[in-house]
Simulated scan of single mutants.
Amino acid sequence: MLPRPMRLHEDEAAGITDSPLLMVATLVVAGLMVVALTADPIATGTDVGDRAPELQSMAYNGNGWVAFNLESYIDESWEEGQPGQWMIIEFLDTDCPYCFNTADQLGDWDDFFDADNPEWDNEDVQVIAVAAELNIQGHDSSREEIQAFRDKTSGYTCASQQDCNARSGSPHAFPYVDDLSLDAMDDWGIRGTPTYFVIQPDGIVAWNSDNTARYENAAEAVANLAAVVAA
């Protein structure tokens, strides 16, 4: 005579359903689904299309040194084709001869891409200078030298043993970020100065110095990418 099939009581069946291994597996799957849904698909880097790396330090604004965080300029809700504040970032060294001789260019861009300039007639573009000290003989900068370079004041020696007030252009009106520690240079993978970036309002790199085949310089990139035609 065949034995009668064993029947599980309700509490025994519940014990199988509530198996610790099954519960762990369920939690793992749920966790992976959350990660997949919330993970940022955009890589952080300095190539076009990357999310710009962090940039936090102290910055000189003409009145003194204040806390600076690039994130405060970013609007992640911005959509392409909409108005928004674009950014031009230059990594420079106050002892770099090329930076010294082309400082007028950055000032001209700041003046032109102004919301009050009828020739531009678009949102204000924020220019940001990041001042580093390259590991090159004769490059010996300081916050005082950065101030003198920005404001074109005398008493400090910049590139080629020239007084900082002899650099090209007029005094600048945009922030100079202190990167004498080279932390930002490392984070952004900067190999030399000057190096330029154009950043979209949402923090995405739209152009860099390696992208000159498309646009010759940052100003040309901004003029073509940031302009919004009124409907």
Rank of each mutant, 00 (worst) to 15 (best):
T102C: 07
D140C: 04
F68N: 03
I136T: 03
I74K: 01
L55W: 05
E80M: 10
A67R: 01
Q137N: 08
E90Y: 01
Y98E: 13
W65A: 00
F149W: 13
D104W: 06
W109C: 07
E145I: 14
S154N: 09
I128Y: 00
C158M: 10
I89Q: 01
C158A: 09
D75V: 08
M87Q: 13
E71C: 01
V130C: 05
F112P: 02
G81W: 04
R150G: 12
L134K: 07
E133T: 10
Q126W: 05
C99M: 11
V127C: 00
D121F: 02
I74M: 05
T157F: 04
D50P: 06
S154V: 06
I146W: 09
E119W: 02
I74S: 02
Q85T: 08
V130F: 03
G155C: 15
Y98K: 12
A52W: 01
D50A: 14
D151Q: 15
W120Y: 14
F113Q: 09
D93K: 12
T157V: 11
F113K: 06
T102P: 01
E145Y: 00
G138C: 06
D50W: 07
G107R: 04
T94G: 06
A148K: 09
Q137E: 13
V125K: 04
Y156C: 02
L55N: 08
S72K: 07
Q147M: 15
D111S: 15
D151E: 15
Q147Y: 02
M58D: 12
E123I: 02
S141P: 01
A129G: 03
I136Y: 04
Y156T: 00
D50I: 04
E71L: 03
S77G: 08
T94S: 12
P53T: 07
E76K: 14
K152C: 06
A52D: 04
M87G: 04
C99W: 09
F149N: 10
Y60N: 01
I88H: 02
D95T: 13
K152I: 00
T157E: 11
D110P: 01
L106M: 14
A103E: 03
Y98H: 15
R51M: 11
D95M: 14
N122V: 13
F100V: 07
D50Y: 06
L70K: 00
G62C: 12
R150D: 11
Q56G: 13
Q105M: 11
A132H: 00
E144G: 14
T153L: 09
S142L: 15
